[in-house]
Design a binder for these strands. Structure first.
Length: 587
RNA sequence: GCUGCUGUGGCUCAGCGGUAGAGCACGUCCUUGGUAAGGACGGGGUCAUGGGUUCGACUCCCAUCAGCAGCUCCA
């Protein structure tokens, strides 16, 4: 495995192992709240838990906290730790608790939700907070901490409720750990696909001409082509057929699919022609695939039909949620719809899951989480269908021996689903693969097939995407590899570096010898070899071939792999064999 | 969409109430150099947009647009 590949995974794992840190962080959050209360007595308290990496506390205050405020708060926290206040657990009758919290409206709201008569408080010095605990014994145990940022949040995560200010912080018993964490944050920034995308010239965004729209540069497009070619080949090998469908269709199609009622806020407004016809840019591909299905009468003999398309869709995402390649307004889904009989459902899901595992491992992903989302409160279809479909999804996961978590009530209204989430460099999870069983759309469009008894019957439809969207997947890939694309994916796989101008013809000959199978460039600039190497290294080109007098004379190339230094010399034919092997195993 | 911060040459950023600067990149020339930056010279910005305050605004204020962090929502 490449050294960079899972830097962030290791860092987060190391911390997760020390579950005591959660307690540590929780007490840190209390110290933060105490400091804020000392400096700004008018502030109302929200909640302040430990999170995966550190802690936060939510406050209600009219004025925003400034960076200077954070510095002051940090200084006050320092004082509180130096005071070494004992942290005392108290059990208090609810009535009394109400009196204590009379000036804390948010805490009161929490209090009212607690059924027990006795509630628990933790007190340190003059500060007392309604809290389950547990906590450290005294504030002096919190040694090294830093407030990282302040951002807005909603009370109870509800955008209709009050907007609070959330202060994030991190703390550790040892200075070394804090320093390491700050270095980790710095490295995460360097791994950011937006920075790397610019530096490596992979893609750009031009928000002044439309935010959330991606421009793939030649190098990004080269990677995309490899991904797409691989994707098509694998799908064809697995019994899929390819479809191409339009980007727009008459609005009535979307009325029929239910999108205009269930999905309107995410759709671009339709464009109206002189004739009065309204054409809608597609937010999803499924209605188009359905039209293809409906284009002829279907027999059970044809099923399952597996139709895949790299379909570009447009969704009007809210301004504030856009994020580099990971959340955009125009993207290409690696979509497919499987039409099958009820009997085939489970086997088809197993097939999809297998395919997901194959793809993710081909791209080097080993750290992902699988969620099984069950029936939400608002749903269509019968309970029996839901149970059957949920069971089919669950069985498929079990058959593949995959660990998964149940996400109760998180299914889509038309059916349950499996989501697979991959983490980015900052530990944020992004959904890529998704497998959804749909009862709704086949019914809405009145899809049928003729069964063995010669009767019409409704097929079951599976929506699935494996990479999710090419844009998001590319973004996650960049961060995963820190821009060091493995040989098979690298936009420029190999660059030939002639030592002096007189070696240019030989360098071109090497390029000719390899270019049929590999993406090869020649660095023909008037620069010293050190400079050429440095630039190639910075561009993260996997393979550098240095050619000078020695190589030319002996018909060799001097091989240097990215990040690994020189590896000796080889004849080109021998090198080609080596590279072919490397390609085949996706190294 | 909400809260806060930000918006200066292609990129990263400095700067200031009196009409702009660095590094990298780019161009020309010199140099032909063996495993991470050779040298010299040069071109390039109506300081996001629109209002306002002011004798004067890139600098202060307001609005809009966009970016960033987070919240909410999603592939």
């Amino acid at each position: 495995m490449h050294k960079d590949e899972s830097g962030w995974r290791l860092a987060s794992k190391k911390m997760a192992d020390q579950s005591d840190l959660k307690i540590y962080w929780h007490t840190s959050a209390h110290i933060l709240a105490q400091a804020v209360k000392r400096l700004f007595p008018e502030v109302k308290l929200g909640i302040g838990p430990a999170i995966e990496k550190g802690f936060y506390y939510d406050f209600f205050r009219q004025e925003p906290f400034t960076p200077e405020d954070l510095t002051r708060i940090e200084a006050e926290m320092r004082r509180i730790t130096e005071e070494n206040l004992p942290v005392i657990r108290q059990e208090i009758p609810k009535e009394e608790a109400k009196e204590i919290l009379k000036d804390e409206p948010f805490k009161q709201e929490i209090l009212e939700e607690i059924p027990e008569d006795l509630v628990i408080f933790y007190q340190q010095g003059e500060f007392r907070d309604l809290c389950q605990g547990p906590h450290l014994a005294n504030t002096g145990q919190v040694r090294h901490f830093k407030l990282l940022s302040v951002a807005a949040s909603y009370w109870k995560g509800d955008e209709k409720r009050e907007s609070l200010q959330r202060i994030y912080g991190i703390s550790f018993p040892e200075k070394k750990s804090l320093d390491e964490y700050l270095v980790f944050l710095e490295e995460a920034r360097e791994r950011d696909h937006r920075t790397l995308g610019q530096k490596l010239n992979l893609f750009s965004l031009h928000p002044e001409y439309g935010s959330g729209l991606v421009f793939w540069h030649p190098k990004g497009a080269a990677v995309r082509k490899v991904i797409e070619d691989f994707w098509r080949t694998v799908h064809l090998e697995n019994g899929y057929q390819l479809l191409y469908t339009p980007h727009i269709a008459d609005l009535t199609l979307w009325d029929c699919s239910g999108h205009t009622s269930f999905y309107r806020e995410n759709m671009f407004p339709p464009m109206e022609l002189d004739s009065g016809q309204k054409l809608q840019l597609k937010p999803m591909n499924c209605p188009f695939h359905i039209l293809v299905y409906k284009n002829s009468r279907r027999s059970y003999r044809e099923l399952p039909l597996r139709w895949a398309e790299l379909g570009t869709v447009y969704r009007l995402e809210k301004q504030g949620v856009l994020h580099g390649l990971l959340r955009v307004r125009g993207f290409t889904q690696d979509d497919a719809h499987i039409f099958c009989t009820p009997e085939q459902l489970e086997e088809e899901i197993v097939g999809v899951i297998k395919l997901v595992c194959y793809f993710l491992s081909s791209f080097g992903f080993k750290d992902y989480r699988i969620f099984l989302s069950t029936r939400p409160e608002i749903y269509v279809g019968t309970r029996e269908n839901w149970e059957r479909a949920t069971k089919a999804l669950e069985e498929a996961l079990k058959k593949q021996g995959l660990a998964y978590e149940i996400d109760p009530g998180a299914g889509v209204f038309y059916g349950p689903k499996i989501d697979i989430k991959i983490r980015d460099c900052l530990g944020r999870e992004w959904q890529c693969s998704t497998v959804q069983v749909d009862f709704n759309i086949p019914e809405r469009f009145n899809l049928t097939y003729v069964n063995q008894a010669g009767k019409e019957q409704a097929p079951i439809m599976i929506h699935r995407a494996i990479l999710g969207s090419l844009e998001r997947f590319f973004g996650v890939l960049i961060e995963h590899y820190k821009g060091n694309m493995p040989f098979w994916l690298a936009p420029v796989q190999c660059r030939v570096l002639p030592i002096a101008d007189r070696h240019l013809p030989y360098a071109r000959a090497i390029q000719e010898a390899l270019k049929k199978e590999f993406r090869v460039e020649v660095d023909d600039r008037n620069e010293k070899i050190n400079r050429k190497i440095r630039d190639a290294e910075e561009e993260k080109i996997p393979l550098m071939l240095i050619v000078g007098d020695r190589e030319q004379k002996q018909k060799l190339v001097s091989v240097r792999w990215h990040g690994e230094g020189r590896q000796g010399s080889l004849p080109v034919d021998q090198l080609r064999e080596l590279l072919e092997k490397k390609l085949a195993c996706h190294e």
